[in-house]
Structure formats: C-alpha cells, structure tokens
Design a binder for these strands. Structure first.
Lengths: 178, 178
DNA sequence: TATGTCATGTAACTGGTTACATGATTGC
DNA sequence: GCAATCATGTAACCAGTTACATGACATA
C-alpha cells in the first residue's frame, strides 16, 4: 500500500461517481471539489496512466468522441476505500495572511486593514456561493448527498468565522490607532 | 523585486524582532509562528545565505557560541516591508479531510464519524493552547502585540468553528444512520 | 567520557504547477 | 473555413521536506 499522492484518491473518487475522460475529470474536480481541492493536468494524466497500469481503471470504448473514457474497476474501488481509510496528514501550515499580520507593525495599520477587508469580502462571497450549493444539495435525494453536504457546511462554518474575525479585527485596529 | 519564496519574508521578519542564528531562527519560527507557519533547515540556511549575499542580513561577531548570529541590515528592513506588501497568493486548497468526507459513502459512516471526532479533539486542544497564548500576549505592552494578537484570535475563531461543525456533523451523521 | 543540545549545511526526493505542443471535434 | 472547446501529454521548473553528514560545546 505504497503511499502515493492524494491525487490518486481524488481521481479514483471522481471516477467512482461516473466514468469520464481525463479532461472531464479535471472539470469535475475543479467544479465540484473546487473549494477544497485542486488538480492540474500535469497530475491527472500521469495518475490515470499509473492507475490503468495498476488495473484500478480501464478504458471503455467510446466511438463517439475523441480521447478515452476511464471507468473504475473492482480493484480500483477497493483501492479507493483503502486510500480513503489512510490517515490524512495535513500539509504543513503556511498562511501568508497571518504571516503579514504578525509583522503588522512593519507593514503598517492601513495595509493590515486593507488585508482584513479583502478577507471579509472574499469570505462573504464564498458564503453566498456555499449557500447556493447547500440549497441545490438539499434538494437531492442521492445517498451520497449527506456526505457531500458536510463539505459545504464546513465551508460555511469557516467562511463565517473568517468574515466575523475580519470585521472584529478591523474595528480593533481602528481603535488602536486612536 | 523578484518573487522569491515566502521563506524570505519569514526569515527577515523573525530577524527584525531579534538577531539570531539559523538554528535559533528555526526554533523561533516553529515556536511562535508554529500554528500558521513552518520552515525547515533545508529552506532556512539557503535563504540566509541568499539574504546575506543580497545585503539584507549581516553576520555579527559572537565569540560566545559556535555558529553565527545574523542581524537585519537597513536594506533588509526595506526588503521586508516590500515583501510584506506583496499580495498574498494563497496556496491551492487541498483538504484531505473534506476529500474523504466527500466520498464518505465509500468510506462508511463509522469512519467518517471517527474523522470528525479527531477534528473535534484537535480543535478543542488548539483552542486551549490559543487561549493561553492570548492571555500571555494580553499582558505585554509591546507595540507589536496587537498585531500578533490578530493571528491568535484568528486561530481561536477558526478552531471554534471547526469544533462546532464537527460536533454538529457527528449528530447529523448519527441521525442519518437510523 | 558519554550524552544531549546547539549548529550548519547539502543531496535526493516529492508533489505539484506552468507552459507548451499537438491535434480532434463541434458549431457557427 | 474558422473559432472554440475537447482532449492528451510532456518538459522545465519550483517549493519544500527528509535524511544525512558533520562537528562544537556543555554538563552529568
């Protein structure tokens, strides 16, 4: 069970929902997993090739279009479950925003406030998008929907916390300047 | 103003607080910036060497210990301000937890709940640590303290959101199983 | 004198992005 | 016929980690 990049998990996972081409895979990932995941072609195609060599996916004939459509095999499904069970070792934190704020005295109050406003705006926009997705998802009766919903409520919870923190922090900095 | 890795920002920033060796730099970064930043020796030493070549830092004689202590030069301070002003381009999101939950139907309810419990525990522990730091920081009257405080309140806000989301999600999954 | 900590550095590797090259198919 | 989109792939590069090699200094 060699630990391979999580790209494999994302690819097999997406194919477990529906067979598709590498190109469509990218679109599906950026579209549906976009707010917490990302893959580039430079990852997807090699990952697909390896997965095919390992027998986790197979090409299904598709006279219709150019390119090939991949579907998950039985052992691919097993592999996916195993990958999902592997512990998630989170990537080392590197938060450029907090790094800047930490040295805020060198950066200056005005620039810090501007950073915080950006956060507030981005978080608020994200909230609107998530609420839309939540509404769509609530209407589905697919058995996988409740799980996918968790990723949306996570996004909402964190975005709301960020927005409120940014607002609060702006007032704090404003008072400190007086 | 070639865009170099943010390591340079972290290193110059830390040296703007106090002159120190590469080794101490690492300890300072993991200790103080630890909850949102990380650097390894493999980054720090090359970064210091480049910064010295560029005239941003200089070695100060230190008969006491082995090794050399670096301090920020005037142009290093300028460079730091410029780096802090550069827009923060956040790293592409890759949240292994959400990836697993998204495919939760393949993973199984029990494993999902276990993931969520981990989140709850980790977030709760983090909250305790942050509250300690907050108390310490509130006692300081250093002019940089309010800025550093922002990074702590951010940690608290996000950790609290994660903890509450995890709890809520555990009940949701529990009900769904019935 | 052995152990632990302070200290510096490098080489190999990993995971990932970007930019590019190439071509098929579709719809106007 | 042309533009847009679908589609596949690779090469160069980048940031960062890990593991290792090396050695000084302090202290039990």
């Amino acid at each position: 069970m060699a630990k391979r990049s999580q790209t494999e998990t994302a690819v097999l996972g997406a194919l477990s929902v529906e067979a598709m081409s590498g190109y469509a895979l990218r679109a599906a990932i950026t579209g549906t997993l976009g707010h917490f995941w990302r893959e580039s072609f430079g990852q997807i195609y090699p990952a697909l090739a390896r997965a095919e060599a390992d027998g986790y996916v197979r090409r299904v004939a598709s006279g219709m279009t150019s390119g090939s459509v991949f579907e998950l095999t039985g052992s691919g499904d097993e592999r996916l479950r195993a990958l999902l069970l592997e512990p998630d070792e989170p990537t080392p934190p590197r938060n450029g925003l907090l790094l800047r704020l930490f040295f805020g005295r060198s950066l200056g109050v005005r620039a810090c406030v501007s950073l915080l406003r950006d956060v507030e705006v981005r978080a608020s926009e994200a909230l609107l998008r998530y609420e839309d997705v939540r509404a769509e998802l609530a209407a589905e009766d697919d058995p996988g929907a409740p799980f996918r919903m968790l990723t949306v409520t996570y996004g909402i919870a964190v975005a709301r916390a960020q927005r409120d923190w940014a607002r609060e922090s702006i007032t704090v900095l404003g008072e400190a300047r007086d």
